[in-house]
Write a protein that binds this DNA or RNA. Structure first.
Lengths: 153, 153
DNA sequence: CAGTATCCTATTTGATACTG
DNA sequence: CAGTATCAAATAGGATACTG
C-alpha cells in the first residue's frame, strides 16, 4: 500500500506504536472502499455497468441470483458514493437508467489489478486450502523447532 | 476487469445473456478474494505483516480494536489461503511467528492499486455522500425529462 | 417498470472468560 | 504467550408481497 492513509510504522522496533486511536480504522478510506467493494454484489454491478448503461430490470436479469432488494441497495450505494448515476425518464411505465460515472469508471482499473491477481492465483489458493484442510485432519506437531530459542519477553 | 473469470457479454444487445448459472458468482475467484479482502481486518493484517514478521500478541497490540478472536480467525484465514505462514517455537511461554508468504506479498501490489484509488478519491466520495444526503432531504423531482421518450418494453 | 415494506435467516463481529 | 469456547449483538442478505 502507498502509506498515505494509515501510516503503519515505517520500520520501528518492538513494540510497534501505531499513530492511531482504537477505531480510526473504521474511517480509513481504504478499509472503507474495500468493505464496500467486498460486499456480495457491488463489484459485479460495477463490472456490468462498465459495459454500458442498464435499466433496472435489465440489470436484474443480467445478474442472476441477485434479489430486487439487494440490487436496489447496491445501486443506491454506488449512487451515494458517486460511482453510478441514476436517470429517471418520466415515461409510462417509468424507465430508469443506471450508468457508471467517470469516478466509477476510474475504479475499473484498480479493481482489475486485484481481479487479475485472483484469477492468476486461484489454483494456488485452492491447493493451499485443500492442503491445510488435510493438515487439520492429520498432524498435531510443531513445524519449526528451529531459529529462535527464547522470545523477547 | 480482465474478462478471464466471469465472462460478461462482450457487448451483446438487450437482453443480455450471461453465460452463468444463478450462483456461479459464489465461486468466482474474484468475488471470492474480494469478499475475503473486504472483511473487517484482513487487509490491515496483511499490510502490517507486509512490514515484517510479527508474533501474535505483537499483532494484537499493533492493530488496536481487533479482538483476540478476530485476529485468530483472520490469521487462520490467511494461513488457509497460503497468504501467511505460522511458525511455532516450542519455548516457554510459546512463541508463534506470523509472516507473509511469497503469495501474500504478491497481493500487496494489487491491493495498493485499490488503496491508492481510495486515498485519491476519498474527498470526492465524501462530498458525493454529503450531497446525496442533502438531496434526499430536499428534492423529489425527476432529473432528466430528456433523451428517451418510450423505453423498449 | 422500478421500486418499497416487512419479515426472517445467516453470517460477522465483539465481549468475556478460561486454558495448555 | 497464544490461543479456545461461549454467548450476545450487529449487519448482511434473501423471500415475499405490495405499489405509483
Amino acid at each position: 500500500m502507498s502509506g498515505t492513509h494509515t501510516d503503519v510504522p515505517s520500520m520501528v522496533a518492538t513494540p510497534l506504536v501505531l499513530p492511531v486511536v482504537a477505531d480510526e480504522y473504521e474511517q480509513c478510506p481504504v478499509t472503507d472502499v474495500l468493505r464496500r467493494v467486498g460486499d456480495k454484489w457491488t463489484v459485479l454491478v460495477v463490472v456490468v455497468l462498465g459495459q454500458r448503461p442498464y435499466r433496472f430490470n435489465e440489470l436484474h436479469r443480467g445478474i442472476p441470483g441477485i434479489s430486487q432488494r439487494m440490487l436496489t441497495r447496491t445501486l443506491r450505494g454506488l449512487e451515494e458514493d458517486g460511482l453510478a448515476s441514476r436517470a429517471v425518464f418520466p415515461t409510462v411505465p417509468p424507465s430508469v437508467e443506471y450508468a457508471l460515472t467517470d469516478l466509477g469508471r476510474s475504479l475499473l482499473g484498480p479493481l482489475s489489478a486485484v481481479a487479475d491477481w485472483a484469477v492468476e492465483h486461484q489454483e494456488q489458493i485452492a491447493r493451499s486450502r485443500a492442503r491445510v484442510g488435510q493438515e487439520r485432519f492429520t498432524a498435531g506437531g510443531v513445524q519449526e523447532p528451529s531459529r529462535i530459542a527464547a522470545p523477547g519477553q
